[in-house]
Design a protein around this nucleic acid. Structure first.
Lengths: 163, 163
DNA sequence: ACCTTTTCGTCAATCACGTTGTCGAGTTTA
DNA sequence: TAAACTCGACAACGTGATTGACGAAAAGGT
């Protein structure tokens, strides 16, 4: 096998598999979660809407702030909030502290979605630990924390992908 | 810590980090690759176009086939091919064997992009191995191969995300 | 050989979702 | 108090997807 000056092995032609596997793992988890959500009262939830609801957060937020988190304009965020409101996941109320703002809050349905998601993620991680062993999963998480750039954890996935 | 009947540990409330980390790793690699590509003659390449070019493949393809691989309609694939043609990454020729088809082939520029991508992925994986150790990277890949559903490796990322 | 079905690529209308620019209302700051 | 900023809305527009329809070419069945 080829080697770099520092002795690290360089396997040629297989590097493309790593990102494919990382995204495959991500997609499997998100896909399984959404299958589960669809079976429990949330059939119209997509990964894109899931990200948006995460951007709203349990404490609520405003359209402008959601736009910043999602990497889109406040106008686009406002339209997304309208959709989520139409689907019953959020509700908007006037901010008594600030006459300009309208607070976007999770509705009971939206909160149910977030709670079910958290439970589902825990369940899926436990399943990975059952199959691979707890240490292997923790090692994977630790290694990814080491290698992933800090700015890779933003919620602006759709905006990022299309460049 | 909580336990499942089979003794596997269940850590509550941290499961959401696993998909975030997986996508973060993916995004870091793809981001670094595109930074590199931008510095070497491919500034207009986005992850979305990269996927499309991967769908074309070294052997060439047709618009309909590309559409199937990307999970979009043949009309949408045709427009994407037009864009890639305008950017100089592919060229279209009539199929002498089949009067209906127009073959989409990589141009020299497109091939250069694919070759640089493969080299870049190898380099990035070698960097991960230098930092984490070769065995840890191989373990991560093996574990992801075990857990990721076979149908998670499709190229229809954008279509999948928006549900 | 012939007719039917399928496939390929394109045209047109439409939709989903983002953008920029503008604006009035409300808040903050100099 | 006046100026500057922020919030959310409206309008116009661009991009990239959709469905539906079409002619041309290939493939299959009788």
């Amino acid at each position: 096998m080829a080697e770099r000056p520092d002795g690290a092995p360089v396997e040629v032609g297989v590097g493309f598999e790593l990102p494919v596997l990382l995204f495959g793992g991500f997609r499997s988890i998100i896909g399984a979660l959404h299958d589960e959500l669809a079976e429990h009262g949330h059939p119209d939830m997509s990964p894109a809407y899931g990200y948006a609801l995460q951007a709203v957060g349990r404490g609520g937020s405003t359209a402008s702030e959601i736009g910043r988190r999602l990497g889109v304009s406040k106008q686009a965020a406002g339209k997304t909030v309208e959709k989520l409101e139409g689907l019953g996941y959020v509700e908007r109320v006037d901010d008594p502290q600030d006459g300009r703002r309208k607070l976007v809050r999770l509705s009971p349905r939206g909160l149910d979605m977030l709670v079910r998601s958290a439970e589902g993620f825990d369940r899926l991680r436990a399943e990975w630990m059952r199959v691979l062993g707890a240490e292997r999963v923790r090692a994977m998480e630790a290694d990814l924390r080491t290698m992933a750039a800090a700015d890779a954890f933003r919620l602006d996935m759709a905006a990022w992908f299309n460049g």
